[in-house]
């Protein structure tokens, strides 16, 4: 009941226990708990950041999509325009070519006609000369009557 030397023993036990708890129990546990609290806080912050980034990214995504759509429709319009132009061009150049071919053909035809006329005229002249020869039964001096013959030829 009374206080005696036992108090010395209890003091020693108490201080050893305090030292032990301080060094080997409290320290590790609190530092682990602090580290865990920090990790959790970091994780939450990272999650928040990730959420924010996702929001930004989706915003950017819709923007890009919008731009792409706009561009696509622009390209489409341009392509249509170009196609129209090409068609117009084709039509125009086709017309020109046709005109060209047409005129070429006409010229050729005219030439042919002219040549045929020349041939015919030559033949008719020859025939006329032959006819005249026959009629006259005599040789016509080609040199003396060349002027006459030429006038007949041109009249035909």
């Amino acid at each position: 009941m009374n206080v005696n030397a036992t108090i010395i023993g209890q003091l020693i036990t108490f201080w050893i226990l305090i030292w032990f708890v301080m060094k080997y129990v409290w320290g590790p546990i609190t530092s682990m708990m602090e580290a865990r609290a920090k990790r959790i806080a970091d994780g939450l912050a990272a999650g928040e950041r990730g959420k924010h980034e996702l929001e930004l990214a989706s915003k950017r995504g819709t923007q890009v999509l919008h731009e792409a759509k706009q561009k696509a429709s622009e390209i489409l319009a341009q392509a249509e325009k170009r196609a129209g132009e090409i068609v117009e061009d084709g039509k125009a150049s086709g017309n020109v070519e046709r005109e060209r071919q047409l005129s070429l053909a006409k010229a050729e035809i005219e030439q042919e006609v002219h040549r045929a006329k020349e041939g015919l005229r030559q033949q008719v002249a020859d025939l006329a000369v032959a006819g005249a020869e026959k009629i006259l039964r005599r040789e016509i001096d080609a040199k003396a009557h060349a002027e006459l013959l030429a006038s007949i030829q041109s009249e035909l």
Partner: peptide
């Protein structure tokens, strides 16, 4: 005078705490 029981059980409980804590 030493109270052996007090010292013994005080030390035993302290030891139990140390072992479990460690």
């Amino acid at each position: 005078t030493w109270h052996l029981d007090t010292i013994l059980f005080g030390a035993l409980t302290a030891l139990a705490l140390m072992i479990v804590g460690r």
